[in-house]
Each structure stands twice: as C-alpha cells, then as structure tokens.
Amino acid sequence: MDSTIKKLFENLIDDDKDVQYEAFMNLLDITNEKVNWAYEVWDQLLKDLTEGDNHQRSRAAQFLCNLAKSDPEKRILRDFSTVWAVTKDKKFVTARHSLKSIWKIAIAGSQQKKLVLNNLTDRFITGTDEKNYTLIRFDIIESLKKLYDEIKDEQVKELALDLIEKEEDTKYKRKYASVWK
C-alpha cells in the first residue's frame, strides 16, 4: 500500500469532518477497482464492523463490500456474516448504507453471488417485522438492479421481479417495479 492510500485511511479519523468525508469518498472510488492492498486493511476493517462507532461500522462495511473483488483468498465468504450484521445495525442510516453496498460482494464470484442473493432474498421475504421494512425492500430491489446492470445476469433480474410480485401492497409493488423500468 502506498503512502497516499495510508494517508487516506488515516484521514478517516481526522478531527475535520470534511477531511474524513473526502478520504472516504476517495477510498470508495479507489476500491471500485481491484487493488493489491486489500489484506493490509482487511482485519482492521473487520474489527471496525463490531468495535467502531456507527461511522466506522458503515465505512468498514462499504469498504469490505468494495474490496470483495480484490479478495482472491475469498475471505469475504468467511467474514460475510459480520458484514451482513451491519445491515441490521441499531443506527438505521448505518444499516442502510451497508445494505446498499452488499451487492458489490456478488460481483466477486459465483459463491459470493449465491451468498448475497440468498441473504437478500431471505431478508426481503422474512423482514416484514423490521422497522422501515418497505424501505429495506426497496434497497434490496435497487441493489439487485445495480448487480444486474453490472453483470447482466438474467437470474438476478428474474429474482428481483419475483420478489416484487410477492409484495401485496399495490403502492409498494409499483414503487419497487419502477426501479426496473
């Protein structure tokens, strides 16, 4: 990892919120592509998922989702449950940011895709007792659309459309379907 990347990670804990935000956005942009330093930060990010404040948890989850494509050892398969737990964080905004990034793990390979799709499907179907579940469902459908746009897998599209059909409320069914128009 070069000094620029190290500095960006250091800036995530800077006192200046603008410096933190700029570092965060730069790191998200950088990790949208494969990087060769994922394992240099992996363990710390895992630690931040459970020990950090809500900002650290959110950032760590988003970074790990992005870094899944830079994970030839497939550590994300072992660590997925810890990342997934942040999608149910006590701070809804943290949970939502994490959930909206989870689809990126699916582009890392077939095992990762299966894991993500199974978890998103289960959450859509069984999550109706969660607070703000219609928003969570929308995020799931939107995530499936982003995944489809990235990998053009008809299975993903069919899954999303099947989930939309399971929605009984016409208002929300239309809202979810609008993502796919």
Rank of each mutant, 00 (worst) to 15 (best):
S3I: 04
S3L: 03
L12H: 03
I13V: 07
D15I: 00
D15Y: 02
K17I: 10
N26P: 01
D29W: 10
I30M: 09
K34F: 02
Q44N: 15
Q44M: 07
D48Y: 13
G52L: 01
D53Q: 06
R57I: 08
R57C: 13
A60C: 08
A60F: 04
A61L: 03
Q62A: 10
K69C: 07
R78D: 11
F80E: 10
W84R: 10
V86Y: 05
V86L: 04
T87Y: 00
K88R: 13
D89I: 04
D89N: 12
R96G: 01
K104L: 13
A106F: 05
A108W: 03
S110A: 14
S110Y: 13
Q112F: 03
K114T: 14
N119Q: 06
R123P: 01
T126F: 14
G127F: 11
T128M: 13
D129A: 09
N132E: 11
L135V: 05
R137D: 11
R137Q: 15
I141H: 09
I141K: 00
L144Q: 01
K145G: 03
K152F: 00
K152A: 06
D153P: 02
E154M: 13
E154F: 09
Q155F: 08
Q155H: 05
E158D: 15
A160M: 10
L161C: 10
D162F: 09
L163M: 12
E165Q: 15
E168R: 14
D169N: 14
K171E: 12
K173M: 08
K173S: 13
K173Y: 14
R174A: 12
R174P: 01
R174N: 14
V179G: 02
V179Q: 04
